[in-house]
Design a binder for these strands. Structure first.
Length: 625
DNA sequence: AGCACGCCGACT
DNA sequence: GTCGGCGTGCTC
């Protein structure tokens, strides 16, 4: 009988450590059920040893829930490190890292014999030696689109697929993490062209059995490329040659579940642990990546050149939606093929106001802002969806409404009138459209929803720059540059891009020959303000006394300072702790200790207020509203 | 979380 | 005398 070291699946912070159990015939990584404090808890065997250092009497593992070693040692090390860094529980990270067991695919997998695919043939690499030398780079990918078999994909996907092939040819795995399924689709197409069926998609959109099947294939190992959204960064890959993250600044890489670790941070931990090559790729560069470059942790690699980009005057006249120059560019391009028009908001009118007093039109039920989804539609609430057929102003009682701004639908209507005989299609959250052919048409899309055009767009109009930049957030400029760069990358090499409503540094980032200056300037600003990513932050939310206590405990470390507390309603306050990267380990440890203390010592009836919640690297307080 | 253990107030 | 409130600590 040997000793199984088990991490139990419990959200209780005080149980986030290993417990020893007796077992015969359990392998590390299997899921088990153990008797724990008078009941049964599921958990994972993280290690099997001969003897326990526990002084008390060991219980026996009740049963093995799945014989598949779903938690590989290197993934366990990663999960532990990510949880520690974020002052969170390993169990929370495990829930993200390991898909739920599915009996049917598991039985089939256990019965089938293991076949490891042969490595693909090595091809000509765009960055020879990168994988072999385990280099770490910030890659500015080549703009433009390419045809892969029947589909058109971004050139970036072809480049990343080539790097993955370099790893697979060495018999190693590659993990490629993308913001969402739109990029995943392109990357998979590009990968299949160079590595055939050695591609595993780990996608939350798959059915549970499909997802588990894919996960089991990853466990099989061998030269495979694993592609998926943020959770794929935890994929089992014992022989990892390359870890690539596409557009690490995209908010879709931020995990919404505790402990909220973002793909880039997990990738950095994993790279340190496995020593694989690391590629943070994008058309734009995040300030976090810029910081890593300036530290010398990453090397910069730039591929290709973006098409000619012209800044347009804000407006030609008071009513002109599209500046004359942009109009001219579109008119010339549309004769030859599709033209992309990127707008800020979906629907017809993104905002409405009272015609009499000018007050913003608000929902009578929830006071959310009203908007108009279609030209003749009744106003509807952006928050609760309530339709207000007979609206009257809450402040003056007026019944007339004026429309503020133009969404994708209204822009499409107006362009349709300006360009008679040219088809107009809309692509936004409501109207998903992944691709269009190479015939002349106007494609009006919100950012991130742009279809790929066969052969690339002949022109791209980036409208609503002022709208995109009006948001009050630390990251507006960065987000806007990423959105524009992404849309621009869908154009042909010889296309013209017109950017409206952007001035100064942001406009220069798009039009200058050296776009790297933008990320450097953004980072310099954050340094001056002591804002992330120049420093790290953690938010602490809870009752005033508890928050104060946590902030004081962290303050004792030094190299930290605190902002707040500010009232966040329902008797809770929020403080922001700022700390240098060098203090990260100590701060996380102190926060964790306080979380454990709060969970165990403040259970008395009187002291039971709102529980303390800690969010390490919480950027939300800096987003404004 | 649940459950046991342990220490002070009103009860058959 | 003890039944049971709840604060405290532990869970291999």
């Amino acid at each position: 009988m040997s000793v199984a070291r088990v991490v139990v699946e419990s959200r209780l912070p005080q149980l986030d450590r290993r417990f020893d159990f007796l077992a015969d015939d359990v392998a590390p990584g299997v899921r088990v059920r153990v008797p724990f404090g008078g009941r049964m808890l599921p958990g994972y065997v993280v290690e099997v040893v001969e003897d326990s250092d526990f002084a008390g009497e060991l219980h026996r593992v009740e049963r093995v829930l799945s014989a598949v070693p779903v938690l590989q040692p290197e993934v366990w090390a990663l999960v532990r490190a990510v949880a520690d860094r974020a002052a969170g529980s390993a169990a929370d990270v495990l829930r993200i890292a390991i898909p739920g067991r599915q009996a049917r695919p598991e039985t089939a997998w256990l019965k089938a014999e293991r076949v490891t695919p042969a490595p693909p043939e090595a091809g000509e690499s765009i960055l020879p030696g990168l994988v072999e030398r385990r280099e770490r780079i910030a890659l500015r990918s080549a703009p433009g689109v390419e045809r892969v078999g029947e589909t058109w994909v971004g050139r970036w996907a072809v480049e990343l697929a080539g790097l993955a092939r370099d790893a697979l040819a060495r018999g190693e795995q590659a993990i490629l993490v993308v913001p969402d399924h739109r990029e995943q689709r392109q990357l998979v197409a590009a990968l299949e062209a160079v590595v055939g069926d050695r591609v595993v998609e780990l996608d939350a959109r798959q059915s549970n059995p499909d997802r588990y099947r894919a996960f089991l294939r990853a466990i099989d190992g061998g030269p495979i490329a694993i592609v998926g959204p943020r959770s794929a960064v935890y994929a089992p890959a014992a022989n990892l040659g390359l870890l690539a993250v596409w557009e690490d600044g995209d908010p879709l890489h931020d995990e919404p579940l505790a402990p909220y670790a973002t793909t880039r941070d997990v990738a950095l931990v994993r790279q340190q642990q496995s020593g694989c090559a690391l590629v943070l790729a994008g058309h734009a560069r995040s300030t976090e990546t810029q910081r890593l470059l300036e530290l010398g942790f990453l090397d910069a690699v730039t591929r290709g050149r973006p098409p000619r980009t012209l800044p347009a005057a804000l407006v030609d006249g008071p009513s002109a939606r599209i500046p004359g120059m942009a109009f001219q560019v579109a008119k010339e391009a549309i004769a030859h093929g599709p033209v992309l028009v990127q707008v800020a908001r979906p629907g017809h009118a993104p905002a409405l106001a009272c015609a009499r007093c000018g007050e913003r039109a608000r929902c009578r039920r929830c006071s959310g802002p009203l908007r108009r989804a279609r030209a003749e539609a009744s106003p509807s609430c952006a928050w609760c969806g309530a339709v207000h057929a007979a609206w009257s102003c809450t402040s003056c009682g007026g019944r007339g409404i004026v429309e503020l701004g133009r969404g994708s639908m209204r822009t499409a209507d107006e362009l349709g009138r300006a360009f008679p005989n040219v088809p107009v299609v809309v692509a936004d959250g409501q109207h998903e459209r992944l691709e269009v052919d190479d015939r002349p048409r106007l494609v009006v899309a919100t950012r991130g929803a742009e279809p790929i055009a066969a052969g690339g767009y002949h022109a791209v109009l980036l409208l609503d720059g002022e709208r995109l930049l009006a948001r009050e957030s630390l990251r507006v400029a960065e987000d806007a540059v990423r959105a524009w760069s992404g849309a621009r990358a869908l154009a042909r090499d010889d296309a013209t891009i017109v950017l409206t409503g952007a001035v100064g540094r942001v406009a220069a980032a798009m039009t200058a020959r050296e776009p790297a200056a933008f990320a450097a300037a953004e980072l310099a600003d954050r340094r001056a303000l002591r804002f992330p990513p120049a420093v790290r932050v953690a938010s602490v939310v809870g009752g005033p006394d508890e928050v104060e206590r946590v902030v004081r405990a962290v303050g004792e470390i030094g190299a930290t300072d605190a902002l707040g507390p500010v009232d966040v309603g329902e008797g809770a306050v929020r403080s922001i702790v700022r700390f240098d990267y060098g203090a990260g380990v100590d701060v996380a440890q102190a926060l964790r200790a306080e979380i454990v203390r709060a969970a165990t010592q403040s259970r008395s009836r009187v002291a039971k207020g709102a529980p303390v919640r800690v969010h390490v690297d919480d950027h939300e307080p800096f987003e404004g509203i």
